[in-house]
Design a protein around this nucleic acid. Structure first.
Lengths: 229, 229
DNA sequence: TTAATTGCTGATCAAGCGATAAACAATCGC
DNA sequence: GCGATTGTTTATCGCTTGATCAGCAATTAA
């Protein structure tokens, strides 16, 4: 309840930012704020955090909802690297290496309290942007992964991954994703060595894929588990 | 804005419930309400849903927060079946069968929009009960699963599963859990055959565990499996 | 039937919300 | 310097929120 953080009026010769920069600054800080408080957080609290008064927000954003939409846009676009498809499809390298490198980069972006919280909040709201993102993951990442798995096992290039194959990739992908949720949202103890977590999960996925889909096609009987790698 | 749902005053000879039953009825409907609206949902809307006036809620619960706590308690306790440990530990049956049956029962409880939403909402709030639940899953379910995996591969009964083994079980478990999130919260298309999803995920996990930990112990190619208390 | 008890509602309060309007302060072009 | 323009605050509005209280309605006990 202390009144300490009264907006300081251009205290020192603080360079005035361009309108666009200032706007972006607001969005960035609003992201952190909403990540912690949820989108039910008040505009007054948010303004206090920004070091300005509440009405000023309405000079930059028509409404709270518009500000929130802007937050979504930045957060959802943040982790999407256009270079990923090239990385995953680079058959000059072993598939395992490619996937390890991909998940190293992917988790580097999404394994942050801010990102995960905004993502879950918006997911609970059932927003279109969430469904859009899930679609992107499926089409651009998981589909590609399955294609590479098939090629790796010597399957003929086929029309389209089946729903069951995609689902298996989803379970693998989600398992990794949820490591971040447990660590950064539940703040539950996890395996400290994140690299190992990814490595083990990946090895399980590759072994599982080979067993479930690979052998099933070649043999039709489910033979005993044999080490693959 | 329609005023249609005016609380009907003992319309027909509707048997008056005992205070305890009525209370439970309130908690049950409040669970559904908060699952949809989030815990920021208003008490007036909730009361309308119950067909009563808003002040009546305060006759049964001292505050909104107390009501919410009660909702948590029921939701978190719902899926915990005391018979699970016996099921998972029944070595007269193949491990794969036991795990399949376990996840059949487990998903039957948690794969519901209501349960998943309340769970995620409370997780985002960082509530103690959430951490408690995560601890229960780890200690009562995942630890047991790893023990059984070890036994299945013929390992000597050892002190305690390592953090890496528990983590692998977590990734597997979370992958299944997140299927429910995608289906019931994101309302994203998933593999319709849920049984197959569980089966494939399980086979991948078992194959992966055998490869990552099984071979490592027998051959020592991957020796440094640090036992972390 | 009556008196006491319990269940429930209508009216209302203070506090907080998102949003707006008008006035003040800082900056920029000239 | 000066007027215009942009950035920011003060004050305030209408509305909704969680919560309270007095009083009516239904039930129970005698």
């Amino acid at each position: 309840m202390t009144k300490k953080s009264r907006p300081r009026r251009a205290s020192s010769k603080q360079r005035r930012l361009s309108p666009d920069e200032r706007r972006k600054e607001f969005v960035a800080k609003a992201t952190e704020f909403f990540a912690e408080e949820g989108f039910a957080g008040g505009t007054r609290d948010l303004a206090r955090r920004l070091g300005v008064t509440q009405p000023l927000l309405y000079r930059y954003f028509p409404s709270k909802d518009d500000l929130i939409k802007e937050v979504y846009r930045t957060v959802y676009l943040e982790p999407l690297d256009p270079g990923w498809d090239g990385l995953l499809a680079d058959r000059s390298r072993p598939l395992r290496d490619r996937l390890l490198e991909f998940y190293r980069g992917y988790t580097k972006v999404i394994f942050r309290r801010k990102w995960l919280r905004i993502y879950l909040y918006s997911g609970l709201k059932g927003l279109d942007i969430n469904r859009w993102y899930v679609g992107v993951v499926r089409e651009k990442i998981l589909t590609r992964i399955i294609r590479e798995c098939r090629h790796d096992l010597g399957f003929p290039a086929q029309s389209r991954p089946t729903a069951a194959e995609i689902e298996m990739a989803w379970v693998f992908h989600s398992g990794i994703f949820y490591y971040g949720v447990r660590k950064y949202i539940y703040e539950s103890p996890v395996l400290e060595d994140q690299e190992q977590m990814v490595r083990d999960a990946l090895d399980a996925f590759l072994a599982g894929y080979a067993q479930v889909f690979g052998n099933a096609r070649l043999v039709t009987v489910r033979p005993p588990v044999k080490a693959v790698g």
